[in-house]
Nucleic acid binder design. Structure first.
Lengths: 114, 114
DNA sequence: GATATACGCAACCACAAGGTTGCATATGAT
DNA sequence: ATCATATGCAACCTTGTGGTTGCGTATATC
């Protein structure tokens, strides 16, 4: 028996920016790159993108604001790293919504069989 | 041992619109409602939103374009239903990115221990 | 010290996105 | 037939977002 509680609106408002950050092709590409190759510098990430460095930097800041990446300066370059915990948050949301849906289906089924 | 293959850019380009659709608070609220209470009509969903019916309709169409909901007219109302399969797609993406990240960490660790 | 590299910051621009009002249309209820 | 309900559609507005160019600054490298 699933114990899915309804998602609080607070958690929902928190999750939207997360998905929004993942909702851009260039940013998703960056996340994918960071997850596949590990930490990388800004110019390193620029190599894979088809936009200017400044655009990539903006995207990285959006990801950072969403908590999906963190960065630190190393010498003259800035190294970006994936924050897997935040990704898990997103997964958790989807899991809970899915669980809710399953529970709703269950209730509907029971109602019909009534 | 995880068998995480790198995500093809085709799959990535496919996933971004999905996350983008989930990246709006109002839309996420709608998805949450549909998952918690099952299928509902447009005006039904409007009750929980703080925007006009037309705005809600727009959001529903965005969700439909992303494949996250489907709808059918029933009498004078239109009933919207969650497409759980599409939600699973999003989860799958996050899973694979996470697996990639784990694999990358593993390699880094092995490299350091070298 | 001169030079190339890597980045930060600001101004600016075009367009998509979210939202609204207004009006038309179809369907259920009386 | 009449009236209320539920929706569809279009025009319009405002802001946010993704992108650019230009310039300044810090850090390696020679």
């Amino acid at each position: 028996m699933s114990s899915a509680r309804p998602l609080s609106s607070a958690r929902l408002a928190d999750a939207a920016p997360l998905f929004a950050a993942l909702g851009d092709p260039t940013r998703l590409r960056i996340v994918n790159l960071l997850s596949a190759s590990g930490p990388a510098s800004t110019s390193n990430l620029c190599g894979a993108a088809s936009v200017t460095r400044q655009a990539v930097t903006k995207h990285l800041h959006v990801l950072a604001d969403a908590g999906l990446v963190s960065s630190a300066r190393r010498g003259r370059e800035r190294i970006w790293e994936l924050r897997a915990a935040r990704l898990d948050k997103a997964r958790e949301y989807l899991d809970r919504i899915d669980a809710q849906w399953d529970a709703a289906l269950e209730r509907l089924k029971a109602f019909v069989e009534d």
